[in-house]
Design a protein around this nucleic acid. Structure first.
Lengths: 221, 221
DNA sequence: ACCTGAACACCGTTCAAGT
DNA sequence: ACCTGAACACCGTTCAAGT
């Protein structure tokens, strides 16, 4: 049952290794099989080599994941049409989507001050919009931090619900059942507001508007 | 060099295994040696047993971490003095502290709808405060979600900066140097606002006030 | 310079066998 | 019922040796 060795000539040309191809392969694996499948060994296998070979281009797994996040953020469109608010929403939504689309990447964003090329491009664009809104320098600066943190968190949450094995609806239904079974004496507010807690609606848009309105009403410093 | 077996009588009484003692041992390891050290095998060793024994009380590593988060949240004081705003800040700060104090726990909170006893207690208390502030049911419900998400994210960030090997100041200084070396043509806003981006001040308190003010100005639904 | 086989020092989890 | 030794099927990373 063993395959005879195939001469280099005979088999399809092996793509040369590079940081870029490693990063893109990592993203593919993440999308196809999730975070647990993203191992150095799996990336190597996909590239028809051994894990040791990756370390020429990538310092370690964390470095690879940071590069993958940057690659994902590179696909965020930096400009949009519409009102000032529309443009902020468009940039925010695209950023959340870019992160949440690939399981586990949002967590990487939460773990470090953004310094990668494409993260900084998103930040620069958001900063331009905030300044356009008439904010002073300090408020705009603090605001961009806060918004980026919020987007990463929203992406992490969405990514977790969407990916984690089962369906998103199952997760919510299970939580709803749990809330329904709580002792009203111990959890009076949750029990009485349960309807509202699980009420449908565009919470992402609302959350971003809360941030925008709050920033407009809260000078920093 | 090998130690002779000690009779059961002679050695100190081995604490009986229980979910609680496993959870607390996990928290201890997290505090002493960080997230990477928190392995099932390490917890077992600390309890003088084998890893297989843990699975009687804990479904798997994720279950253990969820239980650890709940234990940490159980230490949050649920009441405080002062104005309405003071009370929200106190509850929020205590929650962030409880999470960020133990590396990696905040990420657990980000990955699931809160359903554990002590998380729900924090939520219930926050909900009471929000309703006290005059919010309608839907806004209060969406707001508590948003605030909890923000607190978990803030804790994750703080935890990452504080713990990640080196000092927090080093991380910031490195980011500052990176920002200083950016091409102003590609990153016009970041370069011109660099001072403001790294300006000192209580960003946590400001961020929470942004949320509170935004919620007060943004009805849900 | 780039690549790799083999090894090192680990993991989480399961399961049959013990008490 | 509770506990465990041993095993299974993996990990990330290093390093000496090759080209």
């Amino acid at each position: 049952m063993s395959t005879p060795p195939i001469s280099r000539r005979a088999r399809p040309a092996k793509a040369p290794l590079s940081r870029d191809v490693i990063v893109r392969t990592g993203l593919d694996i993440l999308d196809r099989d999730g975070l647990d499948a993203l191992t150095m060994r799996r990336v190597a296998k996909e590239l028809d080599t051994g894990p040791a070979s990756l370390y020429v281009y990538v310092a370690n797994r964390d470095d690879l994941m940071a590069a993958m996040l940057d690659e994902a953020l590179g696909r965020v469109p930096l400009t949009a049409d519409g009102t000032w608010r529309d443009q902020i929403h468009a940039l925010a939504n695209a950023t959340v989507e870019a992160m949440s689309r690939h399981e586990g990447l949002a967590t990487v964003a939460l773990g470090a001050i953004p310094t990668s090329d494409n993260a900084l491009l998103v930040l620069d664009r958001m900063l331009a919009l905030l300044k356009q809104g008439g904010l002073d320098d300090t408020t705009a600066a603090w605001a961009v931090d806060l918004i980026y943190l919020h987007l990463a968190a929203a992406a992490a949450e969405e990514s977790a619900y969407t990916t984690k094995g089962g369906e998103e609806d199952d997760t919510i239904a299970a939580a709803d059942r749990r809330y329904a079974s709580l002792d009203p004496r111990r959890y009076p507010m949750i029990t009485s507001l349960r309807q509202a807690l699980f009420s449908p609606g565009d919470r992402d848009a609302w959350g971003l508007n809360v941030l925008i309105n709050g920033i407009l009403h809260t000078p920093a410093g």
